[in-house]
Write a protein that binds this DNA or RNA. Structure first.
Length: 280
DNA sequence: ACCCGTGTTCGCTG
DNA sequence: TCAGCGAACACGGG
């Protein structure tokens, strides 16, 4: 269940597993047609079969995969939704649980797209012209690739009455920020997630930019490896500062010799976690 | 049974 | 025209 760091790991994995290799055959789970909308799984398979992986980019939570067949570019746009994940298996291995699409590569590997909740998307992009896909064109500059311009962020926040944490989920602003990192960034910047975003000062926007990048970085460092490990998998410790820590003492207040429990509230139908004492 | 979930899109409203 | 809101999508786990 991915925000920017998990999608970045997926991009690195795909580069390592597939770059330069040809897709011999594509298969799919017939119950998962919705993943391939607005096209059909058969059309997806036709477009990808026989093509060779040429390059993998990431903007926010979108994976932009460029392939090539007979000198012609073929684009593959992937979004992991809530539960999507790319995994590599050896040919002949049983398909992993909830495998919805699979790409058999030349040599021995099979790339599986797993997605239990079917919120993911796999679609092809003619000529790999990703900038002509409206959802991609609407995204702001990727924060990991380009950094965050505090002045631009301050300007965007000044234009909205939405609560700060809700505004952070707008992918046109800072693509890749999701529900966890929105809470984490507000906490790191000591900002109350309920504040209208337009009430932030320049200094607040600057702290927020730093908080977002620090939160991404911490998760990226913890998750880098051969396969994405998700924090909710059995036995995994919660690596976050406030997310899913309702009722636990705020670590920053505790350091200052005070006690303040983390609160959970609901904003825009999503959970928000914060410390009411040190986030203003 | 019921609630919750790291995401996005759609239709409605003012 | 557009920001904002809430339902909907679909399935598994606690």
């Amino acid at each position: 269940m991915p925000e920017l760091p998990e999608v970045e790991i997926a991009a690195r994995n795909l580069r390592r597993w597939a770059e330069g290799r040809r897709v011999e055959e594509v298969g799919w789970d017939p119950r998962a047609r919705r993943i391939f909308r607005p096209a059909t799984p058969a059309a997806f398979a036709r477009a990808v079969e026989g093509a060779r992986f040429a390059g993998i980019r990431r903007i926010g939570k979108h994976l932009l995969v460029s392939l090539e067949r007979g000198g012609a570019p073929v684009g593959l746009l992937a979004h992991l939704g809530m539960t999507g994940k790319w995994v590599l298996r050896a040919a002949g291995d049983p398909a992993p649980r909830h495998a919805r699409a699979w790409l058999r590569l030349e040599g021995d590997g099979v790339l599986h797209f797993q997605d239990s909740r079917l919120f993911g998307r796999l679609r092809t992009v003619p000529g790999a012209r990703f900038d002509e896909v409206p959802e991609v064109a609407a995204l702001g500059p990727d924060p990991l690739e380009h950094g965050i311009d505090p002045a631009a962020l301050a300007g965007a926040l000044a234009a909205s009455r939405l609560p700060l944490k809700v505004k952070l989920l707008d992918q046109r602003l800072l693509p890749g920020v999701g529900n966890i990192h929105a809470s984490e960034a507000c906490y790191r910047a000591r900002l109350d997630p309920r504040r209208p975003s337009r009430t932030l000062s320049r200094a607040g926007a600057k702290a927020l930019a730093a908080g977002i990048l620090a939160s991404f970085r911490m998760t990226l460092d913890a998750e880098d490896g051969p396969e994405i490990t998700y924090v909710e998998e059995p036995g995994a410790e919660n690596p976050f500062l406030v997310y899913a820590r309702e009722g636990e003492p705020c670590p920053r207040c505790r350091r200052a010799g005070r006690t303040s429990p983390i609160r959970r509230i609901v904003q825009a139908q999503r959970s928000t976690f914060f410390c009411p004492r040190c986030q203003r």
